[in-house]
């Protein structure tokens, strides 16, 4: 319903990878459970985060083929902390306007 910004998408991906080392397909599925984004949105996001040094990749054999896993870096962790803070602030500001006024 609400469009998702690229910053928010970065934050979601970082949070998911922070939870556990994971791979592209799984990240996409998990993001799609929460927000409506096209499946093709995720690769550019992952690639950008990787290039910025927020994520790093490594390959692990799985069922006789390679799976590319993503892992969060120290820089990524720092970004995630900032994103969480920003989101908290953003949420409060939105709630401030949205909440019903009859509670007081």
């Amino acid at each position: 319903m609400f469009p998702i910004s690229s910053a928010l998408l970065d934050a979601l991906v970082l949070a998911l990878v922070d939870r556990e080392e994971t791979y592209g397909y799984k990240i996409t599925q998990e993001i799609q459970n929460a927000v409506k984004v096209s499946e093709s949105t995720l690769y550019p996001v992952l690639r950008r985060l990787q290039k910025n040094g927020a994520l790093e990749t490594f390959d692990r054999a799985y069922m006789g083929r390679n799976r590319r896993y993503y892992r969060i870096t120290a820089l990524g962790e720092a970004m995630l902390i900032q994103y969480r803070k920003d989101w908290e602030e953003h949420k409060l500001q939105i709630d401030e306007i949205l909440r019903e006024e009859n509670l007081s």
Binding site: G24, Y43, R47, N66
Partner: peptide, 20 residues
């Protein structure tokens, strides 16, 4: 990335292609 992505999709690769 996309080769692996479609491999991961496995049986639902066709669905994945449509979604992509």
């Amino acid at each position: 990335y996309y080769r692996e992505y479609l491999e991961e999709a496995g049986d639902s690769a066709q669905e994945a292609i449509e979604n992509l």
